[in-house]
């Protein structure tokens, strides 16, 4: 069966470069799956969980902002931050979540509120990914 080449890069490093069977990305307009033979596709990503499957094994990665480009049998993901389940410190993610919640509870001004919401979202996704080692 055909394979997809998945490549995930951040400005700081290349996170993944693997032959995979299926990729599921958190697109800005909803989650989408990619199988070999997908039509050319370019989308922005939101904060979310990206997963891919090699054979029967699933792997999960937390991504923050970025783009996914599907071209032929290549899936290229550009993300600001991409962390594998192994890299995430669950304890720290929990702390972040608590901190973000505290900010939001203080009923901050608009800008602060947005910031708080974003970091809350990040923390939640991190925790979600971290437990799927």
């Amino acid at each position: 069966m055909d394979k997809l080449t998945l490549e995930i890069v951040t400005p700081e490093k290349r996170v993944v470069r693997e032959e995979v069977d299926e990729v599921v990305c958190p697109g800005i307009e909803g989650e989408f799956g990619v199988l070999p033979g997908h039509t050319p596709f370019l989308t922005a990503l939101r904060i979310g969980e990206l997963s891919y499957r090699i054979g029967g094994a699933h792997k999960y990665i937390a991504v923050t902002w970025g783009y996914a480009q599907v071209d032929g049998d290549k899936v290229e993901v550009l993300a600001d931050i991409a962390e594998t389940a192994e890299e995430i410190d669950l304890h720290r993610a929990e702390e972040e979540k608590a901190r973000a919640e505290a900010i939001l509870r203080g009923q901050p001004a608009e800008v602060e509120f947005e910031k708080g919401q974003v970091s809350l979202e990040k923390a939640v996704i991190r925790m979600q990914v971290a437990v799927k080692k």
Partner: peptide, 10 residues
């Protein structure tokens, strides 16, 4: 290419 949410927005 299909763009989400559209080429300009990307």
């Amino acid at each position: 290419y299909i763009y989400e949410p559209g080429p300009e927005a990307v």
